[in-house]
Design a protein around this nucleic acid. Sequence first.
DNA 1: CTGACAATGAGAATCATTCTTATCACAGAG
DNA 2: CTCTGTGATAAGAATGATTCTCATTGTCAG
Lengths: 157, 157
Amino acid sequence: MSSGRGHHHEPAGAWTGHAESALRAAGHRSGGARSSVIAQLAASDCCATAQEVHDAIRASGQRVGLASVYRVLDQLVAVGAVTRVEFGDGVSRFEPAPPDGSHHHHLVCERCGVVRPFESPELERAIHGVGDRERFRVETHEVVLHGRCPDCLPKRA
Amino acid sequence: MSSGRGHHHEPAGAWTGHAESALRAAGHRSGGARSSVIAQLAASDCCATAQEVHDAIRASGQRVGLASVYRVLDQLVAVGAVTRVEFGDGVSRFEPAPPDGSHHHHLVCERCGVVRPFESPELERAIHGVGDRERFRVETHEVVLHGRCPDCLPKRA
DNA sequence: CTGACAATGAGAATCATTCTTATCACAGAG
DNA sequence: CTCTGTGATAAGAATGATTCTCATTGTCAG
């Protein structure tokens, strides 16, 4: 599963470049910790915790401070190149945000812990409608569905 | 805003009784901390943090341990009498769950911090549809919209 | 009324995250 | 090319919410 080649329409390299130029545009300089974090995020196509990113970087032999991982992730979120996701377990997860502005939400299996992304134009439409009706300018939104994945459903027969 | 009388269809007392019998049915005994927490939750018609519940109880002169507040809140969530809400700021909030199963979600203003509940059958329908399509048995779901409330929108003219 | 066992409270322990601070590396001036 | 200012970095301390521990208290069944 680590091959990560192409069930997305854009190559992972595209996001890497996007992230780095976004940071540069925001006035940040480049550095070792930054490239490591960006490379690591690009490598995992699903969301990862700061701790996981840190561990993966250390595993690849690089020495990066945990605080630097958090700082870089915050900067990436601030420039919109990364999305912060929270599943309610007290840990933030991060995933690359496609430059085209598309986004998805997550299904979390309460039994096996698997996380699966999904998209739903209908859901997005409903959320947009709520914003209009409540006269709220909705800037971001989070939707997390908890339940049982197909593998963890008690199937009979 | 503390009068709290009746823009809901059911009296606060109804929920209090519901919560206590739900706990009893789950095999829990009653105690001082429990009644304090339930009473406090019933008093505030919007979501409150464990710390806020604790402070309010102490303010009323009762001596209740913070750990007990957390424990009782967990039990209430477990029996479905309370809903846990997370806005992504690292703090859990809790609010009474109506016995009739109805529920709402929240709009959070990023500027003034005000929280407003909303309901949207369309949104619920969309979520239900996602579960069907993904063959996921959705048991709970959380939706939080972040943005600007009407008061914090830059209005001109 | 009494025993068994859950509930409680105080503080310690844990865990993710943020802060502090000394050091480091790169960009531009000279 | 070398010097110097500024942002980046690493390590560990600090913070804050939540959970755990355990001695004690209170509840409820019999």
